[in-house]
Amino acid sequence: MKSKRSGWKLLTILVLSYAVIIAVSVALGWDKFIVLDPKGPVAEVQQKLIILTGLICMAVVIPVIVLMVYIVWRYRDTPDNDAPYQPNWHDSKLLETIWWGIPIVIIIVLGIFTARDTYKLAKPPVTDANPITIQVTSLDWKWLFQYPGQKIATVNYVQIPAGVPIRFQLTSDAPMNSFWIPQLGGQEYSMPGMAMQLWLQADKPGKYFGSGANFSGRDFAHMQFVVESKPQAEFNEWVKQVKASSPELTKEGYTQLAKPSTAKQEFFSSYPDDLYTEIVDKNGGIYMKHEMDSMNSGSYNGSTKP
């Protein structure tokens, strides 16, 4: 009996100390939870939804666990336990209706929020600023960004103007990947032969973490990139500077770039016209024109119309 009790004591100490470790590390590293620290309207909608649904789920789970602990303790099989024992009680229409009902109600509530935000995020985040388009290509194992409006290109670095909705068009000239900037919003796959679309926006200037989220081969772990958001004027200045001081990206240059390897940040003052269209087409986009048009309700060749 005594050893049993000390076992429970040990377990309680373990659980408590673990809780303390977790609490302390969470408190010390709160700003590290970048998904919960949004810097743009898309990530903000998602963060609110994460917290809301998390709380609803906790409101169900915690009582269930408490109830379980209570029942196991109350109806334990000891000779002196005076709790009622009804070995043949196995049916209650009322109780069963209650616990078919509770999850149904919760699912309805969650379903409404899900539908609301799904339709909301399919549209550009704000409509009063003119969006810009950036064409993103995932390569083995690096990211190429083309600015059709500005006619510049970058590798593993993308600068965006703050407060402006960005229409990222995503494709891949390698196995599929997924384009993710947690503080600006959720990810979207980049797939060969397709031009996918993802709306994101940064509200304020800042430097954000971006990465490939879907495994794409050997050096996938090195597909992290920098997203920098700057005021519009500084962004324009940066574009000018890249145009003035960087080399061109030629066809041959792209062929080299696309070969499997890791890469540092690179900047290009120009790129071959239609490079993005060619990448999409040569990977099979040519067979999917119709589908792509209906998917994006717009062409993928660099139009900046939302």
Binding site: I50, C57, V60, L110, P182, G186, Q187
Partner: peptide, 19 residues
């Protein structure tokens, strides 16, 4: 199961997916 329901919330899944 609860985190499964959280993952099922499609717009939030954009942030959980592959993580």
């Amino acid at each position: 199961g609860a985190t499964g329901v959280m993952l099922a919330v499609a717009p939030a899944d954009y942030q959980y997916h592959n993580s």
